[in-house]
Design a protein around this nucleic acid. Structure first.
Length: 255
DNA sequence: ATGCCTCAGCTCCTGAGA
């Protein structure tokens, strides 16, 4: 079984890339973030023609998440129960015997800002909710655009970007809080090329210079760890014409 | 350097992203 996550930065613009990618990488589940469209504009027909059904949770202009899967997804939950949020950031469902959570974590803009405070509240609510979810169904996968680096290995310039957004101690403490629930950072279970990132700034030739961050992650419950056979970043879509600024991460589980 | 690029939208500029 294969699962993947990809922040597409507008599904309208990136649909051709997504369809091409699914054809070349027929994963069982693909979590998308930053759809930037409302549910009435979601391309169900194009995905159905490719052999996929979708559960979507969109909004106008910003945010928006979806779970695309070969098999139907059930018990769908949108956003964090009990956490009032105007933004469409989370979609969870049962797929293939797993609880799959796709998430677009808040950016946070700048430490000390209102948006940073919102990010921290959101992270706290996510952790509390996932603790209960894991108790109910330990076979859980949390994947998406976390907008947080684990450590300096995830940062192209850890000195210059020290304590900036995605790299602060507060954000990283919350990310470790998720690990503390019994979740595993699957990419780090396997040897990776040096300077492995999932996002590169559009500006300043960020991708060409490999000046990026690893902020898209796939975490699994400890009980799934024995089934994790591979995890890797697929840089290829970032090199296409008119790319998203993020690239997919792919997890392989033994059946 | 309050810059660089990309996207959506009350579209010829602005806000947001990261």
């Amino acid at each position: 079984m294969k699962l993947a996550t990809w922040n597409v930065n507008s599904l309208t613009v990136r649909l051709p890339h997504v369809l091409d990618w699914l054809q070349a990488h027929p994963v069982d589940v693909l979590a998308l973030q930053e759809l930037k469209l409302t549910d009435d504009k979601f391309p169900h027909a194009a995905l159905a023609a490719a052999g996929y059904q979708a559960q979507c949770f969109g909004q106008k202009t910003y945010n928006g998440v979806a779970l695309i899967s070969r098999e139907p997804a059930t018990a769908v939950v949108r956003n964090i129960p009990g956490f009032e949020d105007e933004m469409a950031r989370v979609i969870a469902a049962d797929v293939g015997g797993l609880r799959v959570v796709g998430a677009y974590f808040p950016n946070g803009q700048e430490p000390g800002s209102d948006k940073f405070a919102y990010k921290m509240r959101w992270l706290e609510a996510l952790r509390v909710w996932l603790r209960a979810e894991l108790a109910r169904q330990p076979q859980l996968v949390l994947m998406g655009d976390f907008n947080i680096t684990f450590d300096d290995l995830d940062v192209w310039d850890p000195v210059g970007l020290k304590d900036t957004i995605h790299c602060t101690a507060e954000e990283r403490a919350q990310l470790q809080g998720l690990i503390g629930l019994g979740l595993v950072d699957t990419l780090r279970l396997f040897e990776q090329p040096p300077r492995s990132y999932t996002w590169w700034d559009y500006r300043n030739f960020g991708f060409r210079r490999n000046q990026g961050l690893r902020i898209d992650h796939i975490l699994v419950g400890e009980s799934l760890r024995p089934r994790v056979s591979h995890c890797a970043i697929d840089r290829a879509p970032r090199a296409l014409e008119r790319p998203s600024d993020h690239t997919p991460v792919v997890l392989t589980l033994t059946d």
